[in-house]
Structures are given as structure tokens and as C-alpha cells.
């Protein structure tokens, strides 16, 4: 695979950082890829601390919300924690509109997200 991955996963400060490295998350393969990735993370360790970095995402479809909400539920049930960070205004708007900004902990950037989970 010489292509740049759409989803980058790395460990940082005791957390798993999931970076969506694509400008547009619409429907289809990328949403499926996110679902697969997140499901695997839960299966590996349902109690981990996870930061999802949206810094490079300019647009996100509503189909992605379903995947994120399910991930949140599965993680919360097992004692894991999740923080979203780096939401661009259009993405932030989708979260506000669906009131999911009340559900997810959302931080300005990755550093803030990591320190939120450090406690």
C-alpha cells in the first residue's frame, strides 16, 4: 500500500490517536473504513482512551454520525473514554445541529484533547 492512509492511528501520551486524514468524509468506503477501524479498536481494548482528530476534515456527512455514536456507546459501556478534537466549523455545525456536541467531549486541538484524557 503506497497510498497515504485515510485513517492514521498512533499512540500518544497513553491514548490512541485516530486521525481522519481526508478532507471529506462522505458516504461509502471511507465511512465503512472508519467503522471497521473503530470496531477493531474496541475489540482490541474496550477500555482505552481515544482521541479522534478531525483537524484535516473539512466536511463530514451525517452517515458518519451513526458510526461515531455507536462507537461512543460501545466504548462508554465498557469504561473507555473518547474525546473529539480539531473540529472545523462545518463539522462543528453538524455536531451542534444534532446536539451530539453535548454527548461527545470536544476539544479545540489534539494537545487539549490529550490533556483532557490525561486526568
Amino acid at each position: 500500500m503506497s497510498e497515504k492512509p485515510d485513517i492514521v492511528i498512533r499512540r500518544e501520551a497513553g491514548c490512541v490517536v485516530v486521525e481522519f486524514a481526508v478532507p471529506r468524509i462522505s458516504e461509502g468506503t471511507i465511512v465503512e473504513a472508519i467503522q471497521t477501524t473503530l470496531t477493531q479498536l474496541i475489540e482490541n481494548d474496550p477500555q482505552q482512551k481515544i482521541v479522534i482528530d478531525f483537524q484535516r476534515v473539512e466536511l463530514m456527512s451525517s452517515a458518519t454520525l451513526g458510526v461515531l455514536v455507536r462507537f461512543y456507546r460501545d466504548l462508554a459501556e465498557n469504561g473507555g473514554r473518547i474525546v473529539l478534537c480539531g473540529l472545523q466549523p462545518p463539522v462543528q455545525k453538524v455536531f451542534e445541529l444534532t446536539r451530539l456536541d453535548q454527548l461527545f467531549r470536544i476539544e479545540k486541538d489534539l494537545a487539549a484533547g490529550l490533556s483532557r484524557l490525561a486526568g
Binding site: G66, E96, L97, T98, R99, L100
Partner: peptide, 8 residues
């Protein structure tokens, strides 16, 4: 009017 989608 912000609120959750139906079904979550």
C-alpha cells in the same frame, strides 16, 4: 432548534 436525531 438543536436536538438529537431520531434513533440514537
Amino acid at each position: 432548534l438543536h436536538s438529537l436525531p431520531i434513533g440514537f
